[in-house]
């Protein structure tokens, strides 16, 4: 039996062939090293992400999340739900809070769930993957497995919005959370705790609908990382990763910049540090290739 077991909610962007598929691959191999077992909630559905608000209304949004809770309860009783996507985590947690605080909303939700032949008896805990790592495993445990420290790599920890607000990781400040920097140090790389743009919004869904506005922000985020001498950016959020990485070319066109900085997931750093291959870490999934990491991943492991 694995040391830690969770019901896993991958979310749409982490599916095969979707924008964050590299995230999923690296998380899977990271969890293998750490002896964490994730069991996908059967037939899970989209969380409704906050951008769906125009059409969704209140109840339908919560019902979508509640369906996942019900499926988890039915198929994986007693397990906490773990999400890797910030938006999924946030959406699900929000639903959890609202349903817990409103009996009416809870009753209405149950009524709707009945139509799909489901019900909720107990509210599950909703955890983000980094919470599991920090709180359930701890930095010491995570560090134990490092066999290939990312020595000399300077990495800007970009926390972004939704893993940080409004819930955040326990004990961290909204304005200057430290956990990502600590994770960077944990894998043996150099962190930049004073990186000013670490909680700046990447534009979220506006990157699709109103690109100029979002890109203006992304520019600040990338620029500051460069200013601090970062070689790459790391983030815990798929939307952050995508927005900050894939628009660099367009930003270069608009602003005449020469951005070309890789944007990684913490899980990718960990897999490489844990001795995994470029493939385990899904390094091929980067639009902007992380050459430095690829080199390290090619090196033999010091045991």
């Amino acid at each position: 039996m694995a040391k830690h077991e969770y019901a896993f909610y991958p979310g749409c962007s982490s599916q095969k062939g979707a924008s964050a598929s590299n995230y999923l691959t690296s998380v899977e191999s990271m969890c293998k090293t750490l002896d964490v077992k994730l069991t996908e909630i059967p037939d899970w559905n989209c969380c409704g992400a906050s951008i769906g608000y125009a059409e969704a209304g209140e109840l339908p949004r919560h019902v979508m999340n509640a369906r996942n809770f019900a499926l988890s309860e039915k198929n994986l009783p007693g397990q906490e739900i773990v999400a890797t996507c910030a938006a999924c985590w946030l959406g699900a947690r929000e639903t959890r809070e609202r349903l817990t605080h409103s009996d009416t909303l809870m009753a209405d939700t149950r009524e709707a769930l009945k139509e799909a032949g489901l019900t909720i008896n107990e509210m599950p805990n909703i955890r983000h993957m980094v919470e599991v790592l920090i709180e359930d495993l701890g930095f010491d445990e995570m560090k134990k497995h490092v066999v290939r420290p990312l020595e000399g790599v300077k990495i800007a920890g970009y926390v972004g919005c939704q893993t940080n607000r409004p819930f955040g990781v326990d004990g961290e400040s909204f304005e200057n959370p430290q956990y990502l920097d600590r994770m960077v140090e944990m894998v043996g790389a150099e962190s930049i705790p004073e990186y000013e743009q670490k909680v700046t919004c990447c534009g979220g869904a506006l990157a699709f609908s109103e690109p100029e506005k979002a890109q203006a922000q992304i520019k600040d985020i990338v620029e500051s990382a460069y200013d601090h001498g970062a070689e790459m950016i790391v983030t815990p959020c798929p939307l952050c990763q995508a927005n900050v990485e894939i628009y660099q070319g367009q930003i270069n066109k608009t602003y005449g910049t020469k951005f070309n900085i890789p944007v990684m997931y913490y899980s990718q750093l960990m897999v490489v540090a844990y001795g995994g291959s470029a493939k385990d870490a899904a390094l091929n999934g980067q639009m902007i290739k992380a050459r430095r990491l690829e080199e390290i991943a090619a090196k033999p492991v010091k045991r």
Binding site: D108, E111, A112, E115, A116, L118
Partner: peptide
């Protein structure tokens, strides 16, 4: 199931 569930939710709302 999802469609039915959402239909109900809209109705209630």
């Amino acid at each position: 199931g999802i469609q039915a569930m959402l239909k109900k939710a809209y109705e209630i709302e």
